[in-house]
């Protein structure tokens, strides 16, 4: 009995903290204020840009994470440990440092050549302080989480089935596409959802690399910051609650696809 009291008591502290945080946000604002804030055109623009950039970042993450997760799961090759470590760097890097690194990368002169100038002048696709910078900042972190998820997914799929497929006439690519990938669909949905949720919460790298220009590079996380900076606490709380709602939808989606969180 004492065991459950101590364990339950310690666990309850954390659960209570989460409930209190959400309750405080809800009590601070009223439905009218919430509605008023969300009807602001700049917040609606930020909402649309958030949906767009998070979705692009999640799709890009999945495209990279699926082959990389598969290679890390299935093959032993020289430098594998290094790649494995490098993939985790965006997760452990302080967010502002990541944003600063992106900014430096795009503006580092290499002789007469700069990545940003080349993209802007030759490809007519400027990145820094534009919406692609938002996507890239979100992708840099979201992809790392997606790779981890896809690696665990492929670790849990029996590689013998792909081996047998190869004896039946499959190339390695066919074995991956026809045998491994159809088994990995749950993991792919989970990876995309986690990447999307991570992208939603991204703030530091976006602020540094994309700025926080209204109607241009403002996403919901930067809206909270902008509203706070001009003393609009009600609007900041309303947007925060909107982000909480979006995160809850993502969590429910994850559970619905049975990723083990329900058990």
């Amino acid at each position: 009995m004492l065991f459950f009291l101590i364990m339950g008591g310690l666990s309850a502290c954390f659960i209570l903290l989460i409930i209190l945080l959400l309750a405080a946000d809800l009590l601070f604002t009223s439905f009218g204020e919430f509605r008023e804030a969300l009807l602001k055109p700049e917040i609606q623009a930020a909402f649309r840009l958030t949906l767009l950039t998070c979705t692009i970042a999640a799709i890009l993450s999945l495209w990279v994470a699926t082959p990389l997760g598969y290679l890390l799961s299935r093959y032993r090759f020289p430098g594998r440990w290094l790649i494995d470590t490098l993939v985790d760097i965006p997760i452990v890097l302080p967010p502002l440092v990541l944003g600063l690194s992106l900014l430096i990368l795009f503006h580092l002169p290499m002789g007469d050549w700069k990545l940003e100038s080349w993209l802007r002048d030759d490809l007519h696709f400027p990145v820094t302080y534009r919406w692609p910078a938002v996507v890239l900042a979100q992708f840099s972190v979201a992809c790392a989480f997606a790779v981890r998820t896809m690696r665990v997914t492929f670790d849990q799929i029996n590689p013998r089935a792909e081996d047998v497929a190869r004896t039946l006439g499959c190339t390695r690519a066919q074995a991956f596409l026809q045998i491994a990938l159809p088994q990995a669909w749950r993991g792919m949905i989970t990876a995309a959802t986690i990447a999307w949720a991570r992208a939603l919460g991204e703030f530091g790298p976006i602020l540094v690399f994309a700025g926080a220009t209204r109607f241009r590079t403002e996403v919901l996380s930067t809206t909270v910051f902008l509203e706070l900076s001009v003393g609009e606490l009600d609007a900041a709380v309303a947007v925060s609650l909107l982000m909480v709602a979006m995160a809850v939808v993502v969590l429910l989606f994850l559970r619905w696809f049975g990723t083990g969180l329900t058990t």
């Binding site: 089935a161 081996d163 047998v164 497929a165 004896t167 088994q183």
Partner: peptide, 20 residues
């Protein structure tokens, strides 16, 4: 030769059927 070019049918111990 590649596994698929050997004309060998293989039944592993765990069978490794294709779940999908």
């Amino acid at each position: 030769a590649l596994p698929g070019d050997r004309q060998v049918g293989y039944v592993p111990q765990d069978l490794a059927l294709f779940p999908t």
